[in-house]
Design a protein around this nucleic acid. Sequence first.
DNA 1: TTGCCGTTTGGCGTAATGGCCAAATGATTA
DNA 2: TAATCATTTGGCCATTACGCCAAACGGCAA
Lengths: 88, 88
Amino acid sequence: MGHPSRVYMVEELSRGERCVCELTEMVGADVSTVSKHLSVLKNAGIVSDEKRGSQVFYSLRVPCILNFFLCVEEVLKANAAEHSALAG
Amino acid sequence: MGHPSRVYMVEELSRGERCVCELTEMVGADVSTVSKHLSVLKNAGIVSDEKRGSQVFYSLRVPCILNFFLCVEEVLKANAAEHSALAG
DNA sequence: TTGCCGTTTGGCGTAATGGCCAAATGATTA
DNA sequence: TAATCATTTGGCCATTACGCCAAACGGCAA
C-alpha cells in the first residue's frame, strides 16, 4: 500500500472487478508493472484474482480498506485547512 | 505509513501523547531514526507535535487511522483463515 | 502444432527508504 | 557562559521498491 498506482487500483476495484488489461489502461503503466502491483496486493490479501479464459479478473477482498481512503481524504482536508490557516 | 515502526508508533499514540524519548524506548531503535519516522508522520499530517520544555510530545491527529489498523487485522484474519483452509 | 493474446516472472538500472553515527539546534540549569 | 539533556538534521551505506524490457507461461483458435 501507499503507492499511488495501488491506491488507484484499489479504488477502482471497489467499484467492481477489473481485468489486468483494464487496470493497465487506467493506470497508464506497463502491463508488467501493473501485474506486479496486483501481485503485491494479492499477497497482502487485499485483492483476489480469478482466471476466466485468458483473462484474469481482480476484485477487492477487503472492503474496509475504503475506510482508509476516507481517512486519507480527511487527513488531506485537515492539511489543506492548516495550510490555508497558515497562509491567511 | 506501511513501516512497522511507524505503525507501532501510531498505535501507541492512539492511547495518548508520547514524547520522543518514550517512543524511542518502545521502538528500540536509535533516537534519530525515531525522530525521522515522526517527521514523516508529521509531514503526512497524521501526527502533531508540541514542544514543552526540552521535550517534544507527539499526538495522533487523525483518529480514523485506527480504522485502518482494524481493517489490517481483518485482512490478516482472512489470510489466516485461508491458509488454514488450504492446509486442512 | 503453430500462432496470437493476456498475464506473469526475471533481470537490470535507478530512485527511494531505513538505520546508525556524528554534528547541530534548542531548552534548562549552574 | 558553560554544561547537559532532548531532539533534529546531515552523511553515509545497505536494502528495498519501481518501472521498463524481454522472456516465459497458459488459454484459445486455426
